[in-house]
């Protein structure tokens, strides 16, 4: 009897040991898996950041090397000439982007106001919001071809104004989205207070809600400008390019992305360095604009 119970006790403790052992082993296995996965994740992050760092490094290095004052004072050179700058392209880019923003931003803000104030929680509001989201991610080359079919072909030629319209189509969804989101953040009490004082809706929208949401809306516009200032594909079919200084909105106009595109593909080394200088300028501009937009208001993503 006693021997028997001793045996039982022994096997019990043995079982306990093996159980503890088992738990220990399982615990260790989980820890190892965890360690491996976390290392992999950190390595992936490092790997991804490595490429991006490389790209930034190359752009800044090669671009800074090509910087000079003549970039801003001289025109884009013809083939074989070893001097010249990007003055006409910089001017053209600024003009086309400014016009595109001037056309797109008001439409975007208005549409955002409609979505947030007039069509919130309605089926048509949801539908427009969804379409806007799709347009936000639509390939820009297709929008460029759309403007080509709309403005270039029927009116007989490439023009700066067509380029601006193409860029406006790209900036509109960005502005619609941020305006809509920012207006939703304005507390309902503000609307109720305004309406209870008998202020008409339009006045409430312009003088109260727009003022409250203004930093956010401006952020959206700035992010939109950052987005269109580097757009290349749509300009190939609309503004085209121009070797000379031009202020004629109905004629082709030089612009940085197109110049970068042409000069990077060329066999001339001087052209290549000009292309790097252009890429450097655009990258710097986009980064600066995004940073300003971010400090202006709480960061709110526009492309989810």
């Amino acid at each position: 009897m006693s021997a028997n119970s001793g045996q039982v006790a022994q096997s019990d403790s043995a079982r306990q040991i093996s159980k503890a052992d088992f738990a220990e082993r399982r615990y260790r296995k989980r820890k190892i898996i965890n360690g491996v996965m976390l290392t992999l994740s950190a390595a992936a992050a490092l790997f991804g950041l490595f490429w991006l760092g490389w790209i930034l490094w190359t752009t800044l290095g090669k671009g800074a090397a090509a910087m000079s004052l003549s970039l801003f004072t001289e025109m884009t050179p013809p083939p074989g000439v070893e001097s010249g700058g990007l003055a006409n392209a910089i001017f053209g880019s600024m003009l086309i982007c400014a016009l595109g923003t001037a056309m797109g931003a008001p439409i975007g803000v208005a549409a955002g106001v409609y979505l947030a104030e007039y069509a919130n929680h309605t089926k048509r509001g949801e539908a427009i919001r969804f379409i806007n989201d799709i347009l936000l991610s639509a390939p820009s080359i297709v929008l460029g071809l759309f403007v080509y079919g709309l403005l270039v072909k029927p009116f007989g030629g490439y023009s700066a104004i067509a380029g601006s319209v193409a860029l406006a189509l790209i900036i509109i969804p960005v502005v619609v989205r941020t305006t809509d989101e920012m207006l939703k953040l304005v507390p309902t009490q503000m609307r109720e207070a305004a309406l209870s004082l008998g202020i008409p809706l339009w006045k409430m929208n312009i003088q109260i809600l727009a003022r409250a949401a203004w930093p956010g809306i401006l952020t959206g516009i700035l992010l939109g400008v950052a987005r269109i200032s580097g757009e290349t594909a749509p300009l190939l079919f609309t503004a085209l390019g121009n070797q000379y200084w031009s202020t004629d909105l109905t004629a082709p106009m030089a612009n940085l992305p197109k110049v970068i595109n042409d000069f990077a593909m060329s066999p001339f080394e001087y052209w290549n360095s000009l292309a790097w200088a252009g890429a450097f300028l655009i990258t710097l501009f986009v980064l600066a604009l995004s940073l300003i937009a971010r400090t202006l208001s709480a960061p709110k993503k526009a492309d989810l």
């Binding site: 549409a111 409609y114 007039y118 297709v142 759309f146 509109i172 619609v176 809706l201 339009w202």
Partner: peptide
Amino acid sequence: AFAWLTGLAAWSVFFTLLATIGTM
């Protein structure tokens, strides 16, 4: 007028997509 104008802007987004598909 305000509701109509903002609505027009919003629907223009809608029609841009349709028009793009149609034009292509």
